[in-house]
Simulated assay, not measured.
Amino acid sequence: MPGSQHYRQAGIDVLVQRSIGSPNVVVAVIDGPVSAHPDLSAPAMLRTDVGDPSADAGDTAHGTFIAGILAASRESAAPGLCPGCSFLSSPVITANAAAPGRMSTSPARLAAAITMCVDAGAHLINLSVATTGTAQQSSEDLRSALSFAASRRCLVVAAAGNNGTLFSNVITQHPWVLPVTALGNDGRLLRRANLGASIGSRGLAAPGEGVTSLAPGGGYAIGSGTSAAAAIVTGTLALLRSAVPSATAPSLRDAIVRGALRLGPASVVPPSMHGLNTYRLLEEHRPSPTV
């Protein structure tokens, strides 16, 4: 099965074989616009109205790639992790004029998207995005939006970034956010994957090298980095919530960190996610049925 190497590395091969996810689990993809693709059913990505009107067809590659990791049909050449879940697409990132080839959004726009997705019923939000601008009020708005997600028990998974530095931002520093960095196929951290104190203390590492997903125009693409790793974590959480619907958001977040495999001494380096370990932890604490 395509992706099986990454599934084994993340300890999710059994979960993927057992389930495609539940429509009762709502996953929000806050990213770039998602292009139509034959492997992505039209109802799968329900768009919210917080998109950027300046986004155009040239900006769809990243959003389509991330959406595909999650929602592509299991019959696809690049099968998604949880295509049976329900999805929201909030296209807020656009091409960065100051850095050709890179995509970004503003803290204010991202805050509005998070708030709207939470209000729309999202259980999980995937943020494989970077922000530009340093306005204090915009950053406070973003912190408030993340705290609102926490108050509504909507899990937020965020990519750590690909600058190859020790780096945290307003997103990965937030205590409710689950920051994700990327592993290579050799099980070592990708050289350009960001690390940091908040990432090491309460984050995860996940496969992020040579991930195959969807591309605009009906094709496929291979990408590497923390964006792909974050989507793999989000998809795993969606499968876990589908399998153990009684699990609360805090218990899911706690179990996926506790079930991870430590790569070395705890510092700026997070443990490597292991989905089956997480599932076993959740099963141990599943409430017994009443007779």
Results as ranks from 00 to 15, higher is better:
Leu88Pro: 10
Ser89Thr: 10
Ser89Ala: 14
Ser89Tyr: 11
Ser89Glu: 09
Val92Met: 02
Val92Glu: 00
Thr94Phe: 02
Thr94Ile: 13
Ala95Cys: 06
Ala95Val: 03
Asn96Pro: 02
Ala97Pro: 15
Ala98Arg: 13
Gly101Gln: 10
Gly101Met: 09
Met103Glu: 11
Thr105Gln: 12
Ser106Trp: 11
Pro107Cys: 04
Arg109Cys: 05
Arg109Leu: 06
Ala111Val: 03
Thr115Asn: 09
Thr115Cys: 12
Met116Leu: 00
Met116Trp: 01
Met116Ala: 01
Cys117Met: 07
Cys117Ser: 10
Val118Glu: 00
Val118Met: 01
Asp119Pro: 05
Ala120Asn: 11
Ala120Val: 04
Ala120Met: 10
Gly121Met: 01
His123Gln: 04
His123Trp: 04
Leu124Met: 00
Ile125Ser: 00
Leu127Ala: 09
Ser128Tyr: 03
Ser128Glu: 08
Ser128Lys: 13
Ala130Ser: 13
Ala130Glu: 09
Thr131Phe: 10
Thr132Gly: 06
Thr132Ala: 05
Gln137Ile: 11
Gln137Ser: 13
Glu140Thr: 13
Glu140Cys: 13
Asp141Pro: 03
Asp141Ser: 05
Arg143Cys: 04
Ser144Val: 10
Leu146Ile: 14
Leu146Glu: 05
Leu146Thr: 07
Ser147Phe: 09
Ser147Val: 11
Phe148Trp: 13
Ala149Thr: 06
Ala149Ile: 12
Ser151Asp: 15
Ser151Arg: 15
Arg152Asp: 01
Arg153Pro: 05
Arg153Tyr: 09
Leu155Ala: 15
Val156Pro: 02
Val156Tyr: 01
Ala158Phe: 07
Ala158Ser: 11
Ala159Leu: 10
Asn162Lys: 08
Asn162Asp: 15
Asn162Ser: 07
Asn162Thr: 07
Thr165Ser: 05
Thr165His: 04
Leu166His: 15
Phe167Asn: 07
Phe167Asp: 07
Ile171Cys: 15
Ile171Ala: 14
Gln173Tyr: 02
Gln173Met: 07
Gln173Glu: 15
Gln173Trp: 01
Gln173Pro: 13
Pro175Cys: 00
Trp176Lys: 12
Trp176Pro: 11
Val177Glu: 01
Pro179Gly: 05
Pro179Ile: 05
Pro179Asn: 11
Val180Leu: 05
Thr181Gly: 08
Ala182Ser: 09
Leu183Trp: 12
Leu183Met: 14
Gly184Tyr: 03
Gly184Cys: 08
Asn185Asp: 12
Asn185Leu: 15
Gly187Ala: 09
Leu189Ala: 06
Leu190Lys: 01
Leu190Val: 01
Arg191Ile: 10
Arg192Ala: 10
Asn194Ala: 04
Asn194Glu: 07
Leu195Thr: 12
Leu195Val: 12
Gly196Gln: 01
Gly196Tyr: 04
Gly200Cys: 09
Gly200Asp: 08
Ser201Arg: 14
Arg202Ser: 06
Arg202His: 08
Gly203Ile: 04
Gly203Ala: 05
Leu204Gly: 09
Leu204Tyr: 15
Leu204Glu: 02
Leu204Trp: 15
Ala206Trp: 02
Pro207Gln: 02
